[in-house]
């Protein structure tokens, strides 16, 4: 309601308001706003009664100005980690509150591996090592190194293979990658038919 009345009272108050404001601000010599009559009266009285002090207050005081320039603030705060008291609880509560990154294989690997068992990381490692160098890194070596039964290692090495990755030669237009089982690839020889040889099938334990 008040807004409506003020619109009626001074209808041109907001006319071209922004331009007028900018014009006023950009003036080089700005006039101070007029003082309240009571304040003006006070000021006049001070001027009359303490004229010397008033005149001095208008001048620049060199010593005080120098003191102000000499002020320099230095902080001696300790880092917040040292400052905060460490929480020491005897109860088995979680103490570490930092964010954990994901595990490489999607799960936490155990610290102690039971006898006759292995982790995925170790299994992948020995499978790929065996494929690179089957003579030196044979099933016997793996069985001895990882405390696994020889028959089991033979089975794992027979049935699980690490992929050989084929990246297309023309890189600029492609984003695809191919991964094929890295058994001896029959399809690399052009005269041979494109079928998997039967010796790689099940039941051939002495590979």
């Amino acid at each position: 309601m008040g807004r409506a009345i003020s619109k009626i009272k001074n209808p041109l108050r907001d006319f071209n308001l922004e331009n007028r404001a900018h014009k006023l601000i950009s003036k080089p010599d700005k006039q101070a706003a007029p003082k309240h009559p009571k304040d003006q009266e006070d000021l006049n009285r001070i001027k009359k009664e303490y004229n010397a002090s008033f005149q001095e207050s208008l001048k620049k005081n060199e010593t005080l100005d120098k003191h102000l320039k000499d002020v320099f603030v230095v902080s001696h705060d300790k880092p917040i980690d040292e400052f905060m008291p460490k929480i020491e609880s005897k109860r088995p509560l979680p103490q570490d509150r930092s964010q954990k990154i994901d595990f490489l294989f999607g799960h936490k690997e155990p610290d102690n591996i039971p006898l006759g068992k292995t982790t995925l990381r170790k299994a992948l490692l020995f499978i790929s090592k065996h494929q690179e160098d089957p003579k030196n890194y044979s099933a016997e070596v793996i069985a001895h190194e990882h405390n696994l039964p020889l028959k089991l290692v033979n089975n794992i090495l027979e049935y699980y293979k690490v992929f050989q990755v084929y990246v297309p030669e023309v890189q600029s237009t492609t984003k695809a990658t191919f991964a094929g089982p890295s058994r001896k690839p029959a399809f690399q020889f052009k005269d041979e038919p494109k079928v998997l040889p039967s010796k790689f099938k099940k039941g051939n334990d002495d590979t």
Binding site: L104, F105, G106, L120, Y160, K161, V162, P181, R183
Partner: peptide
């Protein structure tokens, strides 16, 4: 596996 893959012969 969740983050790795092997060929199955």
């Amino acid at each position: 596996f969740p983050r790795s893959v092997l060929s199955w012969n």
